[in-house]
């Protein structure tokens, strides 16, 4: 019996890795030969199919979204755990809302973003509409990871700090925050990955313009959107694969950087 189970476990591991390797291998094999210098032209034309503007737009969207979502999300998490009365109505409402929001498929955010930001507020397809839509999408992630990090902080540490005559703010900044940093950071990293990989929430909010947005009110396209558009149009499948390679690379870089960063932070905080 145990042999059968062991075999099944091995088999599923092999299948999982097999599929993953096949996918990545497939993208790399089809994509790398197509990574021509012209793909990195400063401007997109129908000739060079440059993905450079998309890289910049992706970065812009990530940075803007984090600038808005991180403070709101982290503060909300701190409010819920450190300040709000346990079990109060408001806390319950916020918690149910975030839980519901984090389970919603991203196309729903896209639809809401289009109806509310693009049409009702008349932002058109724009960096602003795209950013705000994605902010709503990643907020629950950041709030919940902050909350979970805070809940894992041993109350005896808070007691020790209060017992020494420290106030609430000092306790939060000097004792609680350093311990929760890695947890908060992992929520932010998760958000970055979601933003970089997102298409459904962006296609009708950020739009798909090919140039780099030069204001909050102009449209643009992220790498993932660029790839999506190229492959649906069907005319530039090779370039689409090449874009896929770059997208993989971007995600790899984000993961490596964030791991390094969080290791560094955890270390500093342990004073080693």
């Amino acid at each position: 019996m145990s042999k059968v189970i062991r075999f099944a476990v091995k088999l599923s591991a092999i299948i999982t890795f097999g599929v993953l390797f096949f996918m990545i291998g497939h993208i790399l094999i089809r994509g790398i030969p197509n990574l021509t210098p012209s793909l990195f032209g400063l401007k997109y034309t129908t000739k060079n199919i440059s993905l450079f503007p998309a890289i910049i737009t992706t970065l812009m969207l990530v940075v803007l979204t984090l600038l808005v979502a991180t403070p709101i999300g982290v503060f909300t998490g701190f409010y819920l755990i450190e300040y709000a009365k346990k079990g109060s109505k408001l806390v319950e409402i916020i918690r149910i809302t975030t839980e519901t929001l984090s389970g919603i498929p991203s196309i729903v955010y896209g639809l809401f973003g289009m109806l509310f930001f693009v049409i009702y507020l008349d932002f058109q397809y724009s960096l602003l509409a795209g950013t705000l839509t994605v902010v709503i999408m990643v907020l629950p992630l950041i709030i919940r990871s902050t909350e979970e990090a805070l809940m894992s902080v041993d109350d005896s540490l808070r007691e020790a700090s209060f017992g020494l005559g420290a106030g609430k703010l000092r306790t939060i900044f000097k004792i609680v925050l350093p311990v929760t940093m890695p947890g908060i950071l992992s929520g932010i990293i998760l958000s970055v990955s979601r933003i970089v990989g997102e298409t459904a929430a962006l296609i009708f909010t950020l739009g798909t313009a090919t140039k780099i947005p030069n204001s909050f009110f102009s449209s643009g396209r992220t790498l993932a959107l660029h790839m999506y558009v190229l492959s649906t149009e069907g005319m530039h499948v090779d370039e689409s694969y090449a874009t896929g390679v770059i997208l993989l690379l971007v995600i790899l870089i984000i993961n490596v950087l964030s791991t390094l960063l969080s290791n560094k932070l955890t270390k500093e905080n342990r004073n080693e």
């Binding site: 005896s156 540490l157 007691e159 017992g163 350093p178 905080n269």
Partner: peptide, 21 residues
């Protein structure tokens, strides 16, 4: 209350040092 706790210190049942040096 913070001044009070400065005058009246406390040691807890379970050792609870901060995760720092």
């Amino acid at each position: 209350v913070n001044l009070l706790r400065k005058r009246v210190g406390m040691v807890f049942q379970k050792p609870n040092p901060f995760p720092m040096s």
